[in-house]
C-alpha cells in the first residue's frame, strides 16, 4: 500500500509516498504517521513514485479512532492522478 502524507524528516515537513509493510493496521499506523489531525491518502499503488505535491484539500484527516481511520481509508475514492503531481 502507498500512504501519501507529510512527515518530518530531520525536522523538515516532507511529502512522502510511503510503501507500507504487509500486515500493518493502517488505521492505527496513520495515527503515528502522519499523526492525528493530519491529512493523508492511501492507495494500493500510485502511477509513479515520489510525487512532488499533493492536494490534501479533500483528504481524510487522521482520527484518534483506528476504526474511523480504517473506514476513511476504505472510503477514499479519489484517484491518485487527481491529487498528486510529479
Amino acid at each position: 500500500m502507498k500512504l501519501v502524507c507529510e512527515i518530518k524528516i530531520s525536522g523538515v515537513d516532507t511529502l512522502v509516498a510511503l510503501t507500507t509493510a504487509p500486515g500493518i493496521d493502517l488505521g492505527a499506523f496513520v495515527k503515528v504517521k502522519p499523526g492525528i489531525g493530519k491529512p493523508f491518502y492511501v492507495w494500493t499503488s500510485i502511477p509513479q513514485p515520489n510525487p512532488t505535491s499533493c492536494d490534501f484539500s479533500n483528504a481524510p484527516i487522521v482520527s484518534s479512532d483506528t476504526a474511523v481511520n480504517n473506514a476513511a481509508i476504505a472510503a477514499i475514492s479519489v484517484a491518485p492522478e487527481d491529487v498528486l503531481t510529479w
Partner: peptide, 20 residues
C-alpha cells in the same frame, strides 16, 4: 526498483519505507 521501495518483506517492527 524504479526509484521506489517496491516491496517490504520479513518486516518486524518496521512499518513503512520511502525512496528519497
Amino acid at each position: 526498483s524504479d526509484m521506489d521501495i517496491s516491496g517490504i518483506d520479513t518486516a518486524v517492527n518496521f512499518s513503512a519505507a520511502v525512496w528519497m
